[in-house]
Design a protein around this nucleic acid. Structure first.
Length: 916
RNA sequence: GCCCGCUUAGCUCAGUGGUAGAGCACUCGCUUCACACGCGAGGGGUCAGAAGUUCAAGUCUUCUAGCGGGCACCA
């Protein structure tokens, strides 16, 4: 059998995904067990313009691990894939393409432009779907959804109409965040606050009837052209007599009042605030409170309007700023300009500085929805946030201070708002134009040109993708979904909105659990971002180290932030290679054997802990200590992995598997079984050992599969004897005609009856013996090729039989020429010795080789370690309160440990004395 | 200003009251018939600091320092 010495991930990655997908292994229908429990995940839909980044790879890995794991456990699993239409980004992308052709979207017109977007999507959108196949993501592509699909669009219209009819959606002229570059309104969440080093300008406004001036401070002098008042705090002594008086607004012929408002902080600036209701959210509110005029001096392109006066009309906002300052200076009304650090609102996508503008938009009232979202957190159907701290609180905090959500966008790409206007300006909200005409009783209708915020449709994702508003089987089966796996920054944007919409329209939470992943930072601890150019491309990592190794790395990140560490991927690449070579060894020695998943069945212990058929290796099936031990280890591993995954402790699951495979299986089991397995002559004993080895490997591959789908499938397919019988019963019916696959094999159970602590203790003694002798060899500088003799003294009868039964293995692993086991140790003076578990001792006679000084120092170090531990334990026991208050079992444990150390110390002393 | 998180081996990180761990890096020795992406043996930690609770604290409480994040305000 020719198997390369090095694992080639690319080859395995090419071999299996297509078959999995084509054979329908990802679809829930493959499970024919009517009573199967259900597991479902709705993918946080990636952006149609996006391509895979580390954050996706991280979340997809975790979702896929969970999905594959649950599938192997026999759940009816659905991981629903899809994308959102990313209104602004997509429109920008296609507009940029048009620009290269010398066109704008207006040249094409709305309809042609939308066609062009669909064409773009078909040709270059959705890179992520291809990349997800590379990741091995076991999503059901037959159900793939896109937020602009007709069925999802219908759900959007339905929700809009219902919310409107309930009075939760309204249209209003209010101050909003406007992006002068994208020419659309943005929600609060699409606005990014950036720190900025700017200036604070102190401007003087003269009194109408008097000689005084009032100084106001502003970062935006150009807005003074739209001022309609100056506000002071009602309790501010300095300005009390000014309240109610009139000021002359410079550069205009306007007279503005001084008003008193609690909002003004007397401590800040001059304590007098210019009020520009049309261009500042706080001023807008003040304007409403004092019935001030709203004078629009800046337009949608951030240029000054006619209202700003002839000198300024048409100027860009920054040019106007300079000009205003210049004029104030000329008039002697500029008191001072100081450097000032503040934060400025920018468009999250294009980084243009936001212009607060008064504009007619659609809003979703948040008060009722907020209550739904908060009530859920107190109810018994509350989603479990993992980690609970701090995300449960973050989520609730945000809900508590929410402002109404601006849901309209001045774009063409998106769900056009299902609202029509009659010639008289009456608003008709309907599911379709026909319905609108019927409602209005006229044909003369114009549809609102705006579209809805992309997140409006994303908020419906967990149920719209399952067929809502129809009561489909999918909806009944898979809602609520089992878990949402997502990044921190999506909690507000998406999680809370999905919860509110789910509660409103499904009457239930959209997911049972919310797992919030950590963030992968660059090696300096900075967030990866396009602008910083510090991102690591997951596809490059796949190419360099393989998908499976990358998945293990990502799964280890868990819920806390972690710096990207390529060395870590390398070590998992090495792990994959280790798996490959372990399998290579098994396969190279597999003649005469086939995998038998139930070979260990006779080892199951009953409730009293007695092993059925276990008569210490005398059984015809001839299980050795290491066979019983690896079965115990394997079941413990399965149990621990299951527990870890149940708690979303991916890192712990990976560690457990890594340790089991490398340390237990490779370093000990394979090494201990080698002498049986590699026998030249065929024999029943040899083939039985080979069968056991292959069978353990097969179980190990199943354990690893959810994390490392490719290598496990690649190797599993090569195992002799794998068949339909290996699959979980739920899949046998549907898969009778297809090739068996490890992804539908039953996940190992972690059977408590197969965990045997006595066996583990005996094995530990054997491992201890071998390690101690190896340590002696190394410390005494004995050449690896030089055989040694071992004299073992073991007062414990059980251990004597363990050592005696394994003399072959011991000889092999420590290169011993002879292993003599007796009750008490009688060794020549010139021996190196070690004290072992269970009161046993080992001596390695080293006539002429031993350096007595070195040996004394080696034993001295040993004793020092024991002394350190015993003094700790003694101190603990010396405290009378310890015995009084600590649990009895703890006291017993400590006493036993101390007794053991005392005994070992005595043995060591004896040994040192014997050295002379 | 309010809230939260982090600080453990040289590095990256695990560790939910009871013997301080892993990977990488480091030292020494090995072409041992699965694997040098390997094998064997080692060294390395007053768990940021202080005080407290407890029989017992890396783990719980409070405070301090440093780093990071979120929210509000920012005239």
């Amino acid at each position: 059998m020719e198997i390369p010495k090095q694992y080639d991930p690319k080859q395995a990655e090419r071999n299996h995904y297509e078959r999995w997908e084509n054979q329908g292994c990802f679809a829930p229908e493959i499970n024919r067990d009517e009573n199967a429990p259900v597991f479902s995940i709705a993918i946080p839909p990636p952006n149609v313009t996006g391509s895979l980044h580390m954050g996706h790879a991280l979340q997809h890995t975790m979702m896929d691990v969970l999905t594959r794991y649950k599938r192997m456990c026999g759940y009816r699993t659905l991981w629903m894939p899809g994308m959102d239409h990313a209104g602004i980004s997509t429109q920008l992308m296609v507009s940029r393409e048009l620009k290269k052709e010398g066109l704008t979207r207006h040249d094409l017109g709305r309809e042609k432009f939308i066609e062009r977007v669909w064409k773009w999507k078909a040709e270059s959108g959705g890179q992520i779907t291809k990349q997800m196949r590379r990741e091995g993501a076991s999503v059901d592509w037959s159900r793939e959804k896109f937020t602009m699909d007709e069925d999802l669009s219908r759900a959007v219209r339905e929700v809009f109409v219902r919310l409107y009819e309930q009075g939760m959606i309204y249209r209003g002229n209010r101050i909003v965040n406007w992006c002068p570059s994208d020419q659309t309104v943005l929600s609060d969440l699409e606005v990014q606050k950036d720190p900025q080093l700017g200036k604070l300008y102190y401007l003087r406004y003269p009194e109408k009837n008097g000689d005084r001036t009032v100084t106001v401070a502003t970062t935006r002098p150009e807005t003074m052209l739209g001022d309609t008042a100056v506000a002071v705090n009602p309790n501010d002594e300095r300005y009390r007599d000014l309240v109610g008086t009139t000021l002359l607004l410079p550069l205009t012929d306007r007279e503005i009042p001084v008003v008193a408002d609690e909002f003004v902080d007397p401590e800040f600036g001059t304590g007098a605030v210019k009020v520009t209701p049309a261009h500042d959210p706080n001023d807008y509110d003040m304007g409403v409170r004092h019935s001030l005029a709203q004078i629009v001096v800046i337009d949608a392109h951030a240029k000054m309007t006619e209202e700003a006066g002839a000198d300024f009309a048409g100027l860009d906002r920054y040019k106007a700023r300079a000009k205003v300052v210049e004029k104030f200076e000329e008039l002697g009304l500029l008191e001072k300009v100081v450097d000032y650090e503040f934060s400025i609102s920018k468009c999250e996508r294009c980084r243009t500085v936001i212009e607060p503008l008064i504009s007619m938009q659609w809003f979703l009232r948040m008060d009722t929805l907020r209550v739904l979202g908060l009530e859920l957190m107190e109810g018994f159907r509350k989603p479990r946030f993992v980690p609970e701290v701090p995300y449960e609180k973050v989520y609730a905090n945000w809900l508590e201070n929410l402002r109404d959500w601006t849901i309209s966008r001045q774009l063409w790409w998106g769900h056009q708002i299902p609202a029509w206007y009659t010639a008289e300006g009456e608003i008709i909200v309907a599911r379709s134009e026909e319905e609108a005409r019927a409602k209005a009783g006229t044909e003369e209708l114009t549809q609102d040109p705006d579209v809805l915020d992309t997140w409006f449709s994303s908020a419906l994702w967990p149920f719209s993708t399952l067929g809502w508003p129809e009561e489909t089987d999918d909806l009944k089966t898979f809602y609520p979904t089992s878990v949402l796996v997502t990044a921190r920054d999506i909690i507000f944007l998406w999680v809370s909105r999905m919860v509110m919409m789910g509660m409103q329209f499904m009457g239930d939470r959209p997911f049972d659990d919310v797992f919030v992943t950590g963030t992968i930072l660059d090696k300096h601890g900075q967030r990866m971002s396009k602008t910083k150019m510090n991102g690591v491309d997951p596809l490059e990592v796949f190419d360099k180290y393989g998908v499976d190794a990358t998945r293990l790395t990502l799964a280890s990140v868990g819920a806390s932030d972690t710096r990207w560490n390529e060395k870590q991927v390398e070590s998992y690449r090495n792990f994959a290679n280790k798996i490959w070579n372990a399998a290579r060894f098994c396969l190279m020695n597999s003649e005469g054997a086939t995998v038998d998943p139930s070979w260990h069945a006779h080892l199951v212990r009953d409730e009293q802990g007695n092993a059925a058929g276990d008569d210490h290796g005398q059984d015809a099936r001839a299980t050795s200590l290491h066979d019983r031990w690896i079965v115990s280890r394997l079941n413990k591993t399965a149990r621990d992995v299951r527990k870890a995954l149940g708690d979303y402790q991916f890192h712990e699951a990976v560690q457990t598997l890594y340790h089991f495979f490398w340390d237990d299986f490779c370093d000990w089991y394979i090494e201990l079984t080698k002498s049986d397995v590699t026998a030249e002559e065929p024999s029943a004993q040899r083939d039985a050992a080979r069968t056991r080895l292959l069978s353990v490997l097969e179980q190990a591959l199943r354990l690893l599969h959810p994390f490392m789908p490719y290598i496990t499938e690649e190797l599993w397919q090569r195992l002799p004897g794998v068949s339909q019988e290996f699959l979980h019963p739920a899949y046998r019916e549907a898969t009778s005609t297809i090739m068996p696959t490890i992804m539908l094999a039953a996940y190992p159970e972690g059977n408590a009856g197969l965990i045997n602590e006595d066996v583990e203790w005996e094995m530990q003694a054997l491992i201890d013996l071998i390690s101690r002798v190896r340590n002696i060899r190394s410390e005494m500088n004995i050449k690896p090729s030089e055989p040694v003799r071992l004299l073992i003294g073991a007062p414990h009868e059980k251990l004597r039989s363990v050592f005696s039964a394994n003399t072959n293995q011991i000889r092999r692993l420590v290169r011993a020429s002879e292993v003599a086991v007796s009750e008490t140790l009688a060794a020549p003076r010139a021996s190196a010795r070690a004290v072992l578990i269970g009161g046993a001792e080992v001596a390695v006679p080293l006539e002429g080789l031993i350096d007595f000084e070195a040996e004394r120092s080696r034993l001295g170090k040993e004793k020092e370690k024991l002394r350190a531990e015993s003094s700790k334990l003694e101190a603990q026991l010396a405290n009378p309160q310890f015995a009084e208050r600590a649990p009895a079992e703890k006291v017993t444990e400590i006493r036993a440990r101390l007794a053991d150390i005392v005994q070992r110390t005595a043995q060591l002393d004896q040994t040192i004395e014997n050295l002379g």
